[in-house]
Simulated assay, not measured.
Amino acid sequence: MNALRAEWIKFYSLRSTWLTLAGLVVAGLGITFLSMSAIADSYPDLTAEERLEWDPTRLSLTLFFVVQLIIGVLGVLVVTSEYATGLLRTSLTATPRRHRLLLAKVAVVAAVAVVAGQVLMFAAFFLGQNRLSAAGAPHAALGDPHVLRAIVGTGLYLAVIALLAVALGTILRATAGALAALVAIVLLVPALADIFPGWLDGLFDFWPTIGGSAVVATLPDPAYPHPWVNLAGLAAGVAVLLAGAVVLFGRRDV
């Protein structure tokens, strides 16, 4: 409990924490406002087939594609900032059991990311639907089928990405390296997915921004009929990576 309290104090006392969270909200809602205004204006020009695929909930939550990198920065800095400043030696002196120190960081990041992700996704949903309604385009309500699942699931997806960032920061021990790895995982690999061998297709069912983010949609997707399973698979993969990070953190000199 003392380790958890100490990590929470370190977390909220850093200016970078609040700047990152502010950037998360400003960027997320700004993207939603601008993109949904443009999408709403384009609705009259859609074909009949395109209107059948109209998913107002998914459209208002696509900000996750950008803000996952911002919340990833938060997860990385929780670990690597202490390596950069040398504060980690002090933290290890106060908490000699290394696994407790790292698990306390994981708990703090998870709690903050869950709350921030849910607040942002609900805000983005209501803002997006408001823009659609104002333009006379079809919009969704919170009580519509699968809408609440999509909002909550996308918020949880962001929390999982934050924990992925903590694991990468612990393993690589450098902010630039961890962020580069995060960008490669969530952006580069999905962009190049078509060039990978077919036997890797099953892996992509649980990959961030591919199968792992399927929960954002409310319309049935034959490729991902069980989006919670895809999200759970992503979470399981991140849990394994975190377990490896805990082992490495305990065996290293610093």
Results as ranks from 00 to 15, higher is better:
residue 52 L to P: 01
residue 13 S to G: 11
residue 76 V to H: 00
residue 205 D to K: 15
residue 82 E to H: 01
residue 208 P to Q: 02
residue 36 M to E: 15
residue 254 V to F: 13
residue 80 T to W: 00
residue 72 G to E: 01
residue 235 A to E: 06
residue 107 A to N: 01
residue 61 L to G: 06
residue 206 F to I: 11
residue 242 L to H: 03
residue 213 S to N: 13
residue 240 V to T: 09
residue 120 L to I: 11
residue 156 L to Q: 03
residue 90 T to P: 09
residue 42 S to P: 00
residue 141 A to H: 15
residue 123 A to V: 12
residue 167 A to R: 04
residue 13 S to L: 07
residue 64 F to T: 11
residue 246 V to N: 06
residue 93 T to V: 14
residue 27 A to E: 00
residue 187 L to Y: 05
residue 8 W to G: 02
residue 205 D to C: 06
residue 78 V to M: 14
residue 173 R to E: 12
residue 172 L to G: 08
residue 45 D to G: 12
residue 117 G to N: 09
residue 6 A to I: 12
residue 170 T to V: 13
residue 222 P to Q: 11
residue 174 A to D: 13
residue 215 V to H: 00
residue 14 L to F: 06
residue 89 R to K: 14
residue 173 R to M: 10
residue 157 Y to A: 04
residue 212 G to E: 05
residue 42 S to A: 13
residue 32 T to K: 04
residue 96 P to D: 02
residue 90 T to F: 14
residue 96 P to S: 08
residue 203 L to G: 07
residue 122 F to V: 01
residue 24 L to G: 10
residue 23 G to R: 09
residue 41 D to R: 15
residue 112 V to N: 03
residue 29 L to E: 13
residue 241 L to G: 03
residue 188 L to W: 13
residue 115 V to Y: 13
residue 80 T to V: 05
residue 191 A to P: 09
residue 29 L to V: 08
residue 18 W to V: 12
residue 170 T to K: 07
residue 62 T to L: 15
residue 8 W to T: 04
residue 114 V to T: 13
residue 122 F to L: 06
residue 195 I to F: 13
residue 67 V to Y: 10
residue 68 Q to W: 05
residue 86 G to C: 02
residue 15 R to N: 12
residue 176 A to F: 06
residue 69 L to Y: 13
residue 58 R to Y: 15
residue 110 A to S: 14
residue 169 G to V: 02
residue 19 L to D: 00
residue 108 V to L: 11
residue 142 L to W: 12
residue 229 V to C: 09
residue 101 L to N: 02
residue 144 D to M: 09
residue 247 V to I: 14
residue 2 N to W: 09
residue 115 V to A: 15
residue 242 L to I: 08
residue 208 P to Y: 00
residue 192 L to W: 12
residue 46 L to F: 10
residue 47 T to R: 10
residue 2 N to Y: 12
residue 167 A to P: 04
residue 70 I to H: 03
residue 59 L to R: 02
residue 45 D to L: 06
residue 103 L to D: 06
residue 215 V to K: 03
residue 156 L to C: 12
residue 227 P to Y: 03
residue 72 G to V: 08
residue 219 L to D: 09
residue 34 L to H: 07
residue 138 P to R: 05
residue 78 V to H: 04
residue 13 S to A: 13
residue 171 I to H: 08
residue 115 V to N: 11
residue 225 P to W: 11
residue 124 A to P: 10
residue 198 G to Q: 15
residue 251 R to M: 08
residue 115 V to W: 10
residue 250 G to M: 13
residue 205 D to M: 09
residue 68 Q to Y: 07
residue 179 L to P: 03
residue 92 L to F: 02
residue 137 A to W: 10
residue 134 A to Y: 05
residue 125 F to E: 03
residue 105 K to P: 03
residue 23 G to H: 09
residue 172 L to E: 06
residue 129 Q to G: 01
residue 5 R to T: 07
residue 36 M to R: 02
residue 95 T to M: 02
residue 66 V to A: 15
residue 131 R to H: 12
residue 43 Y to P: 00
residue 239 A to R: 02
residue 43 Y to S: 01
residue 119 V to Y: 08
residue 178 A to P: 06
residue 192 L to F: 15
residue 242 L to M: 13
residue 87 L to Q: 14
residue 192 L to E: 14
residue 69 L to P: 08
residue 19 L to C: 05
residue 213 S to F: 05
residue 41 D to V: 13
residue 64 F to Q: 12
residue 60 S to W: 03
residue 143 G to I: 09
residue 203 L to W: 10
residue 161 I to F: 10
residue 140 A to L: 03
residue 208 P to M: 02
residue 11 F to M: 11
residue 28 G to C: 04
residue 181 A to E: 07
residue 207 W to P: 04
residue 246 V to H: 04
residue 83 Y to T: 08
